[in-house]
Design a binder for these strands. Sequence first.
DNA 1: AATGAATGAGGCTTCATTCAT
DNA 2: GATGAATGAAGCCTCATTCAT
Lengths: 214, 214, 214, 214
Amino acid sequence: MLFSMELADRPRRIPTQARSRRRYEAILDAAAAVFAEVGFDAATTEAIAARADTSIGSLYQFFPNKRALFTGVAERLMARETALFDAVTAERAGAPWPELLDAVVGAFVELRETEPAWHAVWSSALALEGEVKDTAERCHQHIVSRTAAILAGYAPGLPPARVEIVAALLVETVAAMLFASLRYDATRARALLDETTRMVRAYAAEILAPIDAK
Amino acid sequence: MLFSMELADRPRRIPTQARSRRRYEAILDAAAAVFAEVGFDAATTEAIAARADTSIGSLYQFFPNKRALFTGVAERLMARETALFDAVTAERAGAPWPELLDAVVGAFVELRETEPAWHAVWSSALALEGEVKDTAERCHQHIVSRTAAILAGYAPGLPPARVEIVAALLVETVAAMLFASLRYDATRARALLDETTRMVRAYAAEILAPIDAK
Amino acid sequence: MLFSMELADRPRRIPTQARSRRRYEAILDAAAAVFAEVGFDAATTEAIAARADTSIGSLYQFFPNKRALFTGVAERLMARETALFDAVTAERAGAPWPELLDAVVGAFVELRETEPAWHAVWSSALALEGEVKDTAERCHQHIVSRTAAILAGYAPGLPPARVEIVAALLVETVAAMLFASLRYDATRARALLDETTRMVRAYAAEILAPIDAK
Amino acid sequence: MLFSMELADRPRRIPTQARSRRRYEAILDAAAAVFAEVGFDAATTEAIAARADTSIGSLYQFFPNKRALFTGVAERLMARETALFDAVTAERAGAPWPELLDAVVGAFVELRETEPAWHAVWSSALALEGEVKDTAERCHQHIVSRTAAILAGYAPGLPPARVEIVAALLVETVAAMLFASLRYDATRARALLDETTRMVRAYAAEILAPIDAK
DNA sequence: AATGAATGAGGCTTCATTCAT
DNA sequence: GATGAATGAAGCCTCATTCAT
């Protein structure tokens, strides 16, 4: 009550001491695993604590409530996602558009396979109210903006409003197909994603073409 | 005990008498509204009963459990969706591809605006186990298959395997953007969907073109 | 409220019209069957109505509540039991004691096999409060008194207080073994009951002997 | 989910720490009292928790469900019963038969007066499915077997099959009269049990006599 | 009288969160 | 800080009973 900010859906504080830090990460890993396995609602704080080899008491030392745990997992994932996007695009600055596209999609396919909570986070993040939603939207928006900036570089003639919406569509589409492909077996998932890049390339070609043509 | 075989996620009985039928539909509507507002897990059977202006007792007379309620909502929606798809495509049989595409997207935009549970159903249906998942998958598969058939008509030279994956991508993409657009304000939602049809057209053009060209 | 006697755990009225009478008996039979199968608590009024091929509405026309249903079953059984005891003992009035004993035990074994609710009634009747308990006690007491009277005939020198307790023990023992034998398979049940009569005979011999001896 | 294998009707864990142990026993005592007062079905977990001066939460920390609570009460009672029987019979090994009989009956009369749940447990244990039934049957069988062994010592000439059924009858009879006497006032209960020992003695005398005679 | 849909109190159980040790 | 026992609000669901038709 006195420290009402503790009620927020955020970690109480991110510890810096090595020991605490380790425990904090262990809890986050456990939470990611449990959320991934059963989803936000079915996940229990006790299961997470057990998975992290700690007590619920300790868990609540770091996270004021269950949503904060989810927020923690989400934020860590979003940070990685943002960093990955920035890294991949920085690395290929100036590369031909299709190559860039492939690189980004490839990187995210890998990310999705590495991060167990990827599916759980993206399917709940936007449904949940509060912090998580904001974080997710911030992450999404960052990627869209960066995409728009890159796109503007490739198609300088495109009006900014259009750039913005095209970027949004690209990001939404790739994210959605990454998501959808989880429902497919490995082979078909691969095929769906390959076909996605083909679609996006065809689309990008049309958008970039007229400008080149003129 | 009496209804021991009715553990399935299906209505106990679907009433035919006008009065009961009305109540049954009212419960389904209420369930759709509540699921739409708070999602499957946060929805309470009591809230649904209250919304339907009935008692929980009555609710449980029709539906043996909460999942059955969701299944009911989902199946009604899926049935409408399937019917809508079939109607729209039948009506434009033979129409130029872009026109067909616009008609389908338009119809689904409207459906989504009419059906409050659309979002809730599609976001939970595939996550839930049992009946619902099957129904959702059947519905999805039906639309993909029909799309594939139509597509094959427009591009007779395309190998069947390719047709299948392209159809899947088209359906997934349109569905996903319908879904994503819910997070946008009306204007930007419109823009996103318009841009989606543009993307899909560009992609379709590329797929259909080589065949025409040859 | 106005007719507060309707709250009693008794049938509302025992119908005399043939049609109603038939339905009343059907309900009682159904109740007996259901109570026998699952016990008082697990029995549902709906299951009983269904078993009797009537509606719950009709059921409640005859019986004001579930306990009344049980009371009805119990009373019918008790009446039969009392009548049976009286008939068997009347028939063998003056017969040698062991013969009488065998006849009574035999008759009750048969009764128990004919009346599905026998076990259910006796195991719940005394646990339940109210009407049923009274009826059961009345029935039990009737049989004990009659047994005492008979016993007094065979052993005129026995002080009345002793006669009473011996009669009670005899009745309790036979009833209890009838009850216990239900937990045994047919062969062992038979053996247990045979052994019971042997025990009772040995006991009776000792009680009657001193008097004969003098 | 975490305790998914603990669906059995057994305690989740039996605590060893003094404090928890005390609470565990308090819950068991409360359960015994409530089951004794109203029976298994009418007992509510909430009433048990209240009686134990705890919250339901705590109750469910030890017992996964209501049946487990009953099983706990039953097993504790059965253990005491078995131990008591063994102690009493061991103590009088070789004593004359009537003395042994009196000692056992006396011990059980006392046990029944000390254990409030005695009646409730024995009247429900065999009706319930699962763990409880098994435990009850094991306990009963143990006492019957021990009785048979003792009996065989007193009457070495008796064929084993007969020993078995006689032992069963003795145990059933004593148990049943212990049970029946609960429905009597103190004086008459005493009288019934005294008469029971008289009956059993007469019976035993007859069984043991022929052998002595030869 | 008969029907069976409607009612809602109340039971069991889970699980996020607190707090004494 | 760490622990994990304790708490109790809240959800799902059943079923005895009522009442409109």
